Simulated assay, not measured.
Amino acid sequence: MGLFDIFKKKENNTYHLTLQLNARLLPIDRGEFFEEPINEALESCKCGTTDGGGTMQQATGEIEFCDIEILLKDNSMENVDKLLQIIDRIGVPKGSFLRADGFEQSVGTLEGLALYLNGTELSEEVYQNCDINYVIEKIEEVLDGSGRFYSYWEGPENTALYFYGISFGEMKQRMTSFLSEYPLCQKCRVEQIA
């Protein structure tokens, strides 16, 4: 049995794979940044389609990872290679993987940064006068193409903003000055998530 003979064969002769993304994305963002572009690329090369996806949350409610279901028209090496090229071209976070029954392959080149803004310990004046959309806009500006904003999570004590790019270290370094100056970013924390 060949490596790619192990994919589950569906009744309609397609082969089912799951792309598990090491990405903290709301379902709408998963669709916009990954599911829709992958589906368009698969359909344009006539080798498959996406078939929905899912989101796994941590006990806190924060997203842990998400996945995309993929149906290839067959399990030929050519189609699997096309899918891997599509994933590489779109860019997914490190720690992601493509899997089927008995098969798993690591994919991903992007690094992830979570910026946790303190939602409970700053003055009411700061919360009233500062704008989280301004934070996102200014950080994307200072990242200057080295990374971008993908999604967010609103928790009971923090709001997390998720950025993915070429290098966690570079993204962190580029935003440090802004984070130290803007009042809403007081008491924030930065974590590498991919």
Rank of each mutant, 00 (worst) to 15 (best):
F97I: 05
K46T: 12
G31Y: 03
K9Y: 12
L122S: 13
Y15I: 00
T55L: 11
T49Y: 10
D29L: 10
T18N: 11
E43I: 14
E111Y: 13
L42N: 03
C45V: 15
D51N: 11
G52K: 00
Q85I: 03
D29S: 11
Q57P: 12
F34L: 02
I86A: 07
P93I: 02
L117M: 05
G108P: 06
K73M: 04
S44V: 12
I87L: 01
L19K: 03
N75T: 13
K8I: 13
S106R: 11
H16P: 01
P27I: 08
N22P: 00
K9P: 10
P93Y: 02
A114I: 11
R99T: 03
F65S: 14
M77W: 01
N118V: 08
Q105C: 07
V107M: 02
L84Q: 05
A100Y: 12
L110D: 07
E40N: 06
D88S: 12
K82F: 06
F33M: 13
I90R: 08
C47E: 04
L25F: 00
A100I: 15
L17R: 01
F97P: 02
N75Y: 11
L72H: 04
Y116K: 09
K10S: 05
E111R: 12
I87A: 01
Q58I: 14
Q58A: 15
G95V: 00
C47V: 14
A41K: 04
S44Y: 07
R99V: 00
E40P: 03
T14R: 01
R30D: 06
G48S: 06
I90F: 07
K10R: 04
D51P: 05
E104A: 10
T14G: 03
T49F: 11
G108D: 04
M77H: 02
E32D: 14
E62D: 09
G61H: 07
L84Y: 02
I90G: 07
L117R: 04
D51H: 08
Q105P: 06
C45L: 15
F33A: 13
Q105K: 13
T49K: 08
N12P: 09
T109G: 10
L21H: 00
F7V: 03
I86F: 12
T50N: 12
Q58N: 15
F65C: 15
D74L: 13
D29M: 12
D29Q: 13
I68M: 09
E43Q: 14
G91S: 10
E43V: 15
D67W: 09
E43C: 13
Q57E: 14
D101E: 15
F7H: 00
N22A: 03
E69A: 09
T55G: 09
K9C: 13
E11Y: 11
